[in-house]
Amino acid sequence: MSDSHAMADTNTGIPSGKLGMWVFLASEVMLFGGFISSYVILRTGSTNFVVPGKEMLGVPLAMVNTFVLITSSVTMVLALDAIEKGNVKGLIRNLIFTLILAACFLGIKSYEYPHKWHEGITISSGLFGSFYYTLTGLHMLHVVGGMAYMGYLLRNALAGRYTVQSHARVEYAGLYWHFVDLVWVILFPIFYLL
């Protein structure tokens, strides 16, 4: 049902799936907006907000992780570009790259977390830690969700379901993945650099 609607002519000319993804992302902006504005309010307004030193945060590693995620956005663009030219192999290759980069991101984070615990930054040690784990944790959930979606795309791609004419979901996944990337690009400076 949903596929037939997505392909049908619509009033706006935009497929429903794409419009739905944009509307969903608008709500995600509000979700992260709620968290980030709470963080800003307490960081600037609380009398008891201790910001750990840069050496405790491991900025270089986080910088590497930022590049990993941005690169995964590039491979996602390449995946869409490939299938738009009918190159199924290119799609599969770039989806696999994207998945690997996403896994790298999670891997680096799973090294970072215990390191921070060791430094005494835990979720209950103070407001900085509380916000750090809440927001990066929520972001990681989004990464995992994105990986599940891309795994599903990869399965379909291997089964030969995507063609030049029919690959809407690759585009939707791309929109979502760029959003997840964008969130990290905001989280990185507000936690590590400021």
Binding site: M30, S124, T134
Partner: peptide, 28 residues
């Protein structure tokens, strides 16, 4: 669409205050 996600964020913070020992809403 625009109002409920903010409550979701607020509710997650409250939940963490209850179960994870954070103090988003708890003064010193």
């Amino acid at each position: 669409l625009f109002a409920f996600p903010v409550l979701q964020a607020a509710a997650i913070l409250q939940l963490l205050d209850r179960v994870a020992g954070t103090s988003f809403y708890l003064p010193t």
